[in-house]
């Protein structure tokens, strides 16, 4: 499922969610699944150099982590695996979600596939995306 970015509706939803969090006394996880229903949750920052996309996905098996860029869409794949050889009845508490995930997000601007960089640090996947040449603003000389 793809998501298009508009700013104002999200701002309003974030305000509502902050109010909800106060009701639940800060016992909510850091991320905000109920809003988008998709994993992993992402943040997006645009500047002159490009677009930074961060995905909050701790404990992902590094071998399963895969990022691809097609057009203006970024796809993130990975898997959070269960501890090997631990029987279900040995768990006293089990809150952390496990399983494979795929998420595709459309950033709304054509991207340069060859100039994408990704790092995975402290459970945050950080991608530095570069706009395709045709999406980069060009200065037009005005002729008199």
């Amino acid at each position: 499922m793809e998501t298009q970015w508009g700013s104002n509706p999200w701002r309003e939803m974030r305000r509502l969610q902050r109010e909800m969090e106060h009701l639940f006394n800060d016992f909510s996880p850091t991320w905000r699944w109920p809003l988008t229903g998709e994993y992993p949750p992402i943040n997006l920052t645009r500047d002159d150099k490009g677009i930074t996309l961060e995905a909050l996905c701790p404990g992902v098996d590094r071998a399963s982590l895969d990022v691809s860029v097609v057009g203006d869409a970024v796809t993130i794949r990975g898997e959070r695996k269960a501890e090997p050889d631990v029987a279900e009845e040995r768990y006293h508490r089990r809150e952390r979600p496990i399983g494979a995930f795929t998420r595709t997000v459309s950033v709304g601007e054509p991207l340069d596939q060859d100039r994408t960089q990704a790092t995975y640090t402290s459970g945050i996947l950080r991608m530095q995306l570069t706009r395709a040449p045709e999406a980069t603003p060009k200065k037009i000389q005005i002729q008199s």
């Binding site: 970015w5 700013s7 999200w10 974030r14 850091t30 991320w31 905000r32 809003l35 988008t36 949750p41 992402i42 943040n43 997006l44 920052t45 645009r46 961060e54 909050l56």
Partner: peptide, 13 residues
């Protein structure tokens, strides 16, 4: 981060 993202689904705490 020093500045808020343009689009935000999570907030580190």
């Amino acid at each position: 981060p020093a500045t808020a993202p343009d689009y935000q689904e999570f907030e580190l705490a």
